[in-house]
Design a protein around this nucleic acid. Structure first.
Lengths: 254, 254
DNA sequence: TAGTGGTCTAGACCACTCC
DNA sequence: GAGTGGTCTAGACCACTAG
């Protein structure tokens, strides 16, 4: 409920007041708020200002608004986690440790079935010419993450001219392809053989495996497989209450 | 860039137009937009409408706005994942499988040091009277998740009257304590002994361990430890580009 | 100190939907 | 048909900050 900086505006004052009613339970899920014009009068502001507040509450999922019926405290809820993920270099830096990247392999080729399986690709997304990379990220000279990656050279032709022995692939791509979207999946795996050796771990150690597919404009940009020693790394996420977008029946009955 | 429903408003039309310039790279990071009044004139709308659009772009992290200097396409970026997490019962249902909950233990007691360590509690947050629960979630009669949980009876006294042999703790809490916030951390662990047995897994199997602390108004509501067989479960998250909140230096040179 | 964004207003018209 | 939210305007004053 805190507003980071800037002085009190009507907007923030009213937002806090309404939010307090909602999260405290004084206005339970399903509760009908007064109409926009009445609330505006109660708080001595114009309807535009009150509308801005209520619109924001609706966007944040705290209330549901329906023409002709009114504004209701949201009912169906879910937990929504916002997890900031930069890239491995930034993760290491954020831990206050020194990051180093060691490139182990770099070649241009078409992706084979084995590559696709490892990278978690399901449909054969037309195995284009790809730059295939693998290497290890170190934190204070300790293996922190094994990375294998394919970069679509049809989408990012510039990658062919980059050595990636100094440039970290993830950081380079983030700068080169702004506004790309990614889909990640996270699971736990027992590492064996070469994967274990790459991270200097005993056979069978639990690791977090992140499979990441990055897209832009419908084309895949890069597939990445990141392997973190389970004990040394953890994802954290802040969860905030959020109303479900659908199924939020605004019945007053509760 | 699509707007789910509702007809074209000036707002959405302009938002799409500006967003297209940004994500397409026509306006690269650091690019200075025209001033609010000029953009309003160019799009033939009032300054208020244009302000609303630019404010939203700024809130979404696509641009950075500074008084007296202007509006700039954001530079420093990070990937921000929005991960919707309900509770185990919903997760199982979402997979199209039948959920069953088996309560294994239920007792009221103060939390000991061992409990706190297991639940990932660092500071001794005043071990209040707690309802301690543990049990297993099944998906189609297959162990899906082992859960151990402590509920703060000072914050949720009503929990004492609930058996939790039929009620699933997570679902019950979500309904009972709306608008609580949670902090999750995810890591991979090798399960041994009792933990392995609870999930019917061989010793040493990699599992995802989620430690969840739920708070409301500064008090802890519940600590939970959720253990998922690594192979059978994966977290997925959609990532969208987002500008970093700080450090977004609006230099035009960049 | 001048120029930019930040906020607010009073009023208006429109779209949707429950009755 | 009537009442609710959705959107938009023209104008105004204020706050911040780069120059």
């Amino acid at each position: 409920m805190g507003h980071p900086k800037g002085q009190e505006t009507h907007h923030s004052r009213i937002l806090d007041a309404l939010l307090q009613k909602i999260v405290s339970g004084a206005w339970p899920p399903g509760f009908q708020l007064d109409r926009e014009t009445d609330l505006a009068a109660q708080f001595c502001v114009s309807r535009m200002t009150m509308n801005k507040v209520l619109t924001q509450l609706a966007q944040d999922g705290y209330v549901v608004r329906r023409r002709r019926s009114g504004t209701f405290v949201a009912k169906a809820r879910t937990q929504s986690a916002v997890m900031a993920i930069n890239n491995v270099a930034d993760e290491v830096a954020a831990l206050g440790r020194r990051h180093r990247w060691r490139l182990d392999a770099r070649e241009v080729r078409k992706l084979g079935a084995a590559d696709l399986r490892l990278l978690g690709v399901r449909r054969a997304s037309v195995p284009e010419d790809a730059l295939s990379l693998s290497g290890v990220h170190f934190a204070d000279d300790e293996p922190f993450c094994f990375e294998m990656r394919a970069i679509n050279l049809h989408v990012v032709p510039g990658a062919q001219g980059v050595g990636f022995d100094r440039e970290v692939p993830g950081s380079w791509l983030l700068q080169t392809m702004p506004w790309s979207t990614a889909r990640n999946s996270v699971r736990a795996v027992n590492v064996h053989g070469r994967d274990a050796g790459r991270l200097d771990l005993p056979d069978g150690t639990a690791c977090l495996e992140i499979l990441r597919k990055t897209e832009i404009g419908g084309d895949w940009v890069t597939y990445a497989r990141l392997l973190y020693p389970g004990e040394a790394f953890q994802l954290t996420a802040e969860f905030e209450p959020k109303a479900a977008q659908d199924g939020a029946a605004p019945e007053t009955g509760g």
